[in-house]
Measured scan of single mutants.
Amino acid sequence: MDSLVVLVLCLSCLLLLSLWRQSSGRGKLPPGPTPLPVIGNILQIGIKDISKSLTNLSKVYGPVFTLYFGLKPIVVLHGYEAVKEALIDLGEEFSGRGIFPLAERANRGFGIVFSNGKKWKEIRRFSLMTLRNFGMGKRSIEDRVQEEARCLVEELRKTKASPCDPTFILGCAPCNVICSIIFHKRFDYKDQQFLNLMEKLNENIKILSSPWIQICNNFSPIIDYFPGTHNKLLKNVAFMKSYILEKVKEHQESMDMNNPQDFIDCFLMKMEKEKHNQPSEFTIESLENTAVDLFGAGTETTSTTLRYALLLLLKHPEVTAKVQEEIERVIGRNRSPCMQDRSHMPYTDAVVHEVQRYIDLLPTSLPHAVTCDIKFRNYLIPKGTTILISLTSVLHDNKEFPNPEMFDPHHFLDEGGNFKKSKYFMPFSAGKRICVGEALAGMELFLFLTSILQNFNLKSLVDPKNLDTTPVVNGFASVPPFYQLCFIPV
């Protein structure tokens, strides 16, 4: 009986604490739906499609509103004006990374994606500088992407125009580009180590996009005490870190300090320079996690976009025909596509942009946080508050993009057929937390897609009208449904 009384008292205290925290903070924060004790607004949000729920709530509470995930307040920004004001106009104040408990377990605050403060700034600055020195957006990395595009075309030829699921092959190409940047090595598509790495990356994007992960991140005790797919994700990350550590040891034994070959060499050189400046942010643990982040951000996002792009091109054969006509006119058949071609191919450029806009790969991006107490639109948001960005509300804005739910390359073309930029184009987020590999991803999408369409016609196994382009999961990332196609050599 005594234990029951204690339990009831504990629960009562928890409920009172929950109510007090919510009521004391709500006077400062933007308005929002009334949260339930302990669980907050979790029942009012469709976990399978958070973005749709945010759109519905914005119609009631406006472009800036507050939700509670458990006891934790989260300020939501919906629509271009609110997102721009926060991420661009007040970029420094909104540059923090929001709480992501599962990532905390995986990387302990290291790396480039989930770190904060001085650690994040130094690692991000170093990573950007190193990638630029190796030619991100310049010639040397373009050579690597072109080489991988040629290998991709050869792998597709091996399908002999038979029906195939493109998931694996389209994942190999961007993964190999990242391998060449980090390890100075590309792998054969049949290499077992490479296959294991690909498998872990593919599993992780599916797990991260599941409703279960949303629950884990908002009720963090689940991570330590409950079984579930989150444990598989943590094991996959541990596998990748151990693999990278092996490569780091190989580099330490063979590195030429006067001739760095890749990202690992550059990081080890930085560690050597910083060894007298303790404590340094440049450690082996930081290198492991930064490399894992580059793999995660640079492989599955690009391969998922490529997979979605081919599905949309199957669905819209008239678009595919126009792209192939432009390829034939500008590039021809006797040389590989290059980035200089893009400025002469406005329709193809528009298609690449429209694919990214339409699929809305990361509907709410990753959570941000404010780095200080900030007054925002007459609300006071306390330091450390998590900020949720609705990228969907920007990419699918119906004023900027008429009929935003329709796939239409003319969203990025003017009346004369010239490519038209849009400030609403934010597939990689915006501001200080914009994806480090934005330029690389854009290069890969253009070169891989043009190389495929230069060499193959795409054949659907069903009537294009019957192809479903609805994402199968739409949590962290929008993942396309399973499909097969035939690559018919031109």
Rank of each mutant, 00 (worst) to 15 (best):
L15C: 11
D89A: 04
T229Q: 14
K160D: 06
C216R: 07
K420S: 06
L447T: 05
V462Q: 13
H410W: 12
S242P: 02
N231S: 14
F94H: 05
L380A: 12
D463R: 09
D414H: 06
H316K: 05
N418A: 13
D463S: 09
V237A: 07
F456H: 01
F401A: 03
D191W: 00
L90P: 04
P63M: 04
C486K: 08
F134E: 14
K118C: 12
E104Y: 11
S286I: 08
S254Q: 13
I223S: 09
T167C: 08
I359A: 13
I74R: 03
P409E: 04
S12A: 10
Q454L: 06
S460L: 04
N133V: 06
E93C: 09
V145T: 02
M406E: 13
L67C: 11
M406D: 14
L287S: 01
P30D: 01
E122L: 07
V5L: 14
S343M: 07
L366A: 08
N466T: 15
Y379T: 03
H410L: 06
T34V: 12
S390V: 08
P337M: 03
E354Q: 00
R125L: 11
F219L: 11
I99R: 15
Y189H: 04
V323K: 01
N236D: 05
L195C: 14
V319P: 03
Y379D: 03
I207E: 04
L485C: 14
N258A: 13
G416R: 15
V323G: 00
F482E: 15
I213G: 12
V355C: 14
P221S: 11
M255I: 08
E326N: 02
L87W: 03
H344L: 09
K118V: 10
L102F: 10
S162R: 15
N455T: 07
K48H: 15
C266R: 14
Y243V: 14
D397Q: 04
S254D: 11
P37R: 01
K158V: 05
I47H: 08
C164T: 15
E272D: 12
I264G: 04
K121S: 14
G96R: 06
K84D: 04
R329Q: 14
L7D: 00
C13Y: 03
L43F: 13
T304L: 15
L306Q: 01
I452R: 01
F226V: 12
I141E: 03
K52P: 13
S53R: 12
R21L: 13
K118P: 10
K322A: 12
L306K: 00
T304V: 12
I488S: 09
H276S: 09
H276L: 14
F376P: 01
I47V: 09
F456I: 02
I327E: 00
S115M: 10
F482M: 15
L15R: 02
H78T: 12
A149H: 00
C179R: 00
L36I: 15
D143N: 09
L208W: 08
K200A: 14
M426Q: 06
G27Y: 11
L361P: 03
N56L: 10
M129H: 04
A350N: 00
R125K: 15
C435D: 07
V248K: 03
S286D: 14
V6N: 05
I387G: 00
E444F: 02
Q214C: 12
L87T: 07
I213E: 07
S478R: 13
N378S: 12
R139T: 13
R329W: 07
G171M: 11
N217Q: 12
G442S: 15
T385S: 06
E438Y: 07
M129T: 15
V472K: 10
E122A: 13
N204F: 06
G416Q: 12
M339C: 08
T299R: 02
E92K: 04
S58R: 10
L17M: 11
K235M: 09
L458I: 07
Y225K: 04
V237R: 14
P317V: 06
F100R: 06
K423E: 11
S115R: 07
I112A: 13
C175R: 03
F446V: 00
G431E: 05
S210T: 10
S3C: 09
F114K: 09
A369R: 15
E281F: 13
N474S: 14
V330N: 09
L9M: 07
I327Y: 00
R307I: 06
W212T: 03
I123L: 12
G332Q: 04
W120I: 05
I207Y: 08
V38M: 10
R357F: 00
T283I: 06
L102I: 11
Y308P: 00
T167A: 14
M271Y: 04
S478P: 09
C151T: 11
K72Y: 04
T364D: 04
C10P: 02
L440Q: 02
R377Q: 07
P464A: 09
G111M: 05
F267A: 04
G98F: 10
T386E: 08
E122Q: 15
I123Y: 10
H316M: 05
T55D: 09
E154L: 06
V292Y: 12
F126I: 09
P337I: 11
Q356W: 15
P163G: 05
R329V: 13
G416P: 05
G135M: 15
V462T: 11
Q214L: 10
N202P: 03
S162P: 00
